[in-house]
């Protein structure tokens, strides 16, 4: 049984961008995990889960 990726869903407190990071990237990305891809600000964690219904509104960040 698998359950797809688990994401942390964020919004940026500066530019408002919505984005998400898969939690299995925490180790690889280190301090970059959770940063806004546009302005580099620390994202505000909204929720976590596996593909929430509004998932597509959040850009997936992998690097």
């Amino acid at each position: 049984m698998s359950w797809g990726p688990c994401f942390f869903y964020y919004h940026c407190p500066q530019c408002g961008k919505r984005f998400k990071y898969a939690t299995d990237l925490i180790a690889d990305l280190g301090p970059r995990f959770g940063l806004c891809p546009e302005c580099g600000a620390e994202g505000v964690l909204e929720k976590e889960g596996a593909r929430t219904p509004d998932d597509l509104q959040y850009e997936e960040i992998e690097e």
Binding site: S2, W3, P5, C6, T23, D24, L25, A27, D28
Partner: peptide, 12 residues
């Protein structure tokens, strides 16, 4: 091998 699932080994 189930890779990248939460609480399991990351997928790489």
């Amino acid at each position: 091998m189930c890779m990248g699932c939460a609480n399991g080994i990351p997928g790489s």
